[in-house]
């Protein structure tokens, strides 16, 4: 009899006290209520490959970007698969607030200076507040600083300019897969031939699949609705490799320009003909302004 009660007590007592802790835990969970979870890092960088991603720099963060696209891999071993020739883009991009970033850049393609502002319109979240997508709007302009093609005719400064409007909509489907759709209008004040339209209408699709926490596969494609027939649509695949404050993006693409008017308007190479280019973007983020938290 004694033994049975002993055993019963030994069995019961820890169960009871555990149940109590669990009950306290449930109570606390209830009290803390439902919260809003924002999707973070839908993409690892502010660019998927050539085109923008829905991501922005956070407030006070400066992104220094160095990007290169090499010559065609078709040139073979003599040209080290294109690496002997390169175009580049250097840029500085900064988060003014958590919903606005500004960027400036200079690319070798058509000696182009560029500037843009990207606004975060919506942030995907779930829980107490529910928004299924993230959305950003980008407005940019580019300045072609090449010597005039026809110096003898009347040339206007405005002829050097192009404008870009882009609406980006993305969804992080799960922690590995993100998808993005975008629509663009690229207005070129001056085009080279009569067969080219000043306004280009472009649709873009991009995606990312995370392979590990620090390695992701990315791809993007832009479809140009009304470009002259000798131009092609840029398609790129690549990998994002993250190491602390650097992200290395290494890719294969059929375009060598890295600013919108260039890669959307002037791409002529075709994957099917093997005119593929190796390229990379290196981004280094510096935190210029540390976040203040009231303490």
């Amino acid at each position: 009899m004694k033994h049975i009660i002993y055993i019963l007590v030994c069995l019961f007592f820890p169960v009871l006290s555990f149940a109590q802790l669990d009950e306290m835990e449930d109570l606390l969970e209830n009290e803390m209520g439902e919260r809003t979870d924002y999707a973070t890092a839908t993409f690892k960088s502010t660019r998927v490959i050539n085109g923008h991603s829905v991501e922005r720099m956070q407030k006070g963060d400066l992104d220094f970007r160095i990007s290169h696209r090499f010559g065609s891999v078709k040139t073979g071993a003599y040209e080290l698969f294109g690496i002997d020739h390169s175009t580049s883009l250097l840029s500085l991009e900064y988060g003014i607030t958590d919903w606005l970033m500004l960027g400036i850049g200079r690319g070798t393609y058509k000696k182009t200076f560029s500037g843009f502002a990207k606004f975060s319109l919506l942030r995907q979240c779930s829980g107490a507040k529910n928004i299924p997508i993230s959305a950003s709007y980008l407005i940019g302009s580019e300045l072609n600083s090449m010597h005039w093609l026809n110096p003898e005719r009347d040339n206007y400064f405005s002829s050097r300019l192009s404008y870009i409007h882009q609406l980006l909509i993305a969804r992080k489907l799960n922690r590995r897969i993100s998808l993005q759709l975008s629509g663009l209008i690229v207005h070129r004040n001056l085009v080279e031939t009569i067969s080219e339209n000043n306004d280009l209408y472009v649709a873009g699709i991009a995606g990312r699949i995370k392979i590990t926490n620090r390695l992701a596969f990315c791809s993007e494609y832009f479809y140009t609705f009304n470009n002259a027939s000798n131009y092609t649509n840029p398609f790129s695949i690549g990998f994002d490799i993250e190491t602390g404050s650097h992200v290395f993006q290494i890719h294969l693409t059929n375009t060598t320009a890295m600013q919108e008017a260039g890669f959307l308007g002037d791409t002529m190479d075709l994957w099917s003909e093997g005119n593929i280019h190796i390229g990379f973007n290196i981004t280094r983020v510096f935190t210029l302004k540390k976040q203040e938290h009231d303490s």
């Binding site: 802790l21 306290m24 835990e25 606390l28 969970e29 803390m32 919260r35 979870d37 924002y38 956070q58 407030k59 006070g60 963060d61 988060g95 404050s245 983020v285 935190t287 540390k290 976040q291 938290h293």
Partner: peptide
């Protein structure tokens, strides 16, 4: 009992 929402940590460095 303590429950900590991991996402609620604020940092000086956003990255």
């Amino acid at each position: 009992v303590f429950i900590v929402i991991v996402d609620d940590f604020d940092f000086h460095i956003p990255l």
